[in-house]
């Protein structure tokens, strides 16, 4: 059974990777938005923000782009996973999803194929996004181990967000509903762009107690060769917690989905509130 799951997952991952190869714009679009954000923040707001950070924190005060990069990476992932919802939703709209379900395959391989594809696609986008700040003057003396730790955290975060996107894709009624938009706002209200100390009370409370802030801080410290402290554990706890919760919820909605008629039919037969 496990061997079958692996085999089928590899086959289905190959299929959706082909989708990406044939429309590479999905990877480019994923990378362009965060890069635009980065340019905007570094070259437009950057001057004003930089002075604020220099006085407000004791963090290593390299160029602002150093401060910004971790948040930009998370935004890349948060927008990139939307394509997973989209591809999953489109599969269910066409008949291919039902064909897979009626075949003698490991049923969860249909989801795993999309999830692995998401991880690979997001990694490619991340590489593109990291290349740009290198041109813009970002430098890190971080060693291989620190970069591997960063990659590990990013993959964990991608997996967690992808499973959330799977839930969105499975439960969506329309294409627009398939996109897990709110995810993109998490990095905005965090320490990704400015230190949380500068925010008013309730906003600061939210920013400091949501997953993105500890993840951003950890990656920032790793790249700046600072001691990461206990925040890395909070970051990892958020990632694994989200991952487990999202995975279980996705399995639940998948099971509900595959034992029920397609949305097209359901909508015609009855009017949900």
């Amino acid at each position: 059974m496990t061997a079958q799951l692996t085999g089928d997952t590899v086959t289905l991952t190959g299929r959706s990777l082909r989708h990406i190869l044939r429309s590479p714009d999905t990877i480019i679009t994923t990378a362009v938005m965060p890069i635009a954000f980065m340019l905007l923040f570094v070259y437009v707001f950057g001057g004003a923000i930089e002075t604020g950070i220099a006085t407000g924190t004791d963090a290593a005060t390299g160029p602002y782009v150093n401060y910004l990069l971790p948040g930009i990476l998370l935004i890349t992932i948060a927008s990139g996973v939307a394509y997973t919802s989209y591809r999953l939703f489109m599969d269910m709209q066409g008949g291919i999803f039902e064909r897979f379900q009626s075949m003698p395959i490991a049923r969860s391989s249909v989801l795993w194929g999309h999830v692995l594809t998401s991880v690979i696609a997001n990694l490619i986008s991340l590489v593109i996004v990291v290349a740009v700040p290198l041109i813009m003057g970002f430098r890190s003396g971080a060693g291989l181990l620190a970069w591997l730790a960063v990659a590990g955290i990013l993959i964990l975060f991608t997996l967690a967000l992808t499973w959330i996107a799977v839930i969105a894709g499975l439960s969506a009624k329309t294409v627009d509903g398939a996109f897990a938009y709110p995810l993109i706002f998490l990095p905005l209200i965090s320490s990704a762009f400015v230190p949380t100390e500068t925010m008013p009370g309730p906003v600061r409370a939210f920013a400091e107690h949501q997953p993105v802030t500890p993840i951003v801080n950890t990656i920032r410290d790793l790249l700046a060769q600072q001691p990461v402290g206990s925040e890395i554990w909070i970051a990892l706890a958020w990632c694994t917690g989200l991952l487990i919760a999202a995975y279980l919820l996705a399995q639940l909605s998948y099971r509900r989905r595959v034992s029920q008629p397609s949305p097209r039919r359901r909508r015609r037969l009855s009017c949900p509130p």
Partner: peptide
């Protein structure tokens, strides 16, 4: 084997 009402093919 199921051939559903809507052609179950991958267009890409």
């Amino acid at each position: 084997s199921l051939t559903g009402q809507f052609a179950a093919v991958d267009e890409v």
